Computed example of a mutant assay.
Amino acid sequence: MSDNKAVGGKKRAAVLGSPIAHSLSPVLHRAAYEALGLNEWTYDRFDVDEAALPGFLEKLGPEWRGLSLTMPLKRAVIPLLDEISDSAASVEAVNTVLFEENGRRVGDNTDIPGMLAALRERGVGQVERASILGAGATASSALAALPRICTGEVIAYVRSAARADEMSGWGERLGVTVRTAPWEDAAEALRAPLVIATTPAGTTDALAAAVPEHPGTLFDVLYEPWPTTLATAWAAHGGAVVGGLDLLVHQAVLQVEQMTGRAPAPLGAMRKAGEAALAAR
Rank of each mutant, 00 (worst) to 15 (best):
N4P: 00
A6Q: 09
G9S: 13
R12S: 05
L16S: 13
L16F: 15
G17C: 07
S18M: 10
P19V: 07
P26A: 10
H29V: 01
A32Y: 03
A35W: 08
L38T: 13
R45G: 08
D47Y: 02
L60C: 05
G61M: 14
W64N: 01
L67F: 01
P72F: 06
L73C: 05
R75F: 05
S85H: 11
S85T: 15
S87L: 00
A89L: 00
N95C: 10
F99D: 03
F99V: 01
E100W: 02
N102H: 05
N109C: 05
I112A: 13
G114P: 01
L116I: 13
L119E: 11
V124R: 08
Q126W: 13
V127Q: 08
A137I: 08
L143R: 07
A144V: 09
C150F: 04
V158I: 00
R159A: 01
R163A: 14
R163G: 04
D165E: 14
E166K: 15
S168R: 07
E172L: 00
R173C: 03
L190W: 12
R191D: 06
P193T: 14
L194I: 12
A197M: 07
T203I: 05
D205V: 04
L207M: 12
V221W: 04
P225G: 07
P225S: 11
P225C: 06
T228K: 02
T229L: 00
W234T: 12
A236F: 00
A240E: 04
A240W: 00
V242P: 08
G243Q: 15
G244H: 03
A252Q: 06
G261D: 12
A263H: 08
G268E: 13
G268N: 03
G268A: 04
A269Q: 04
A276N: 14
A277T: 10
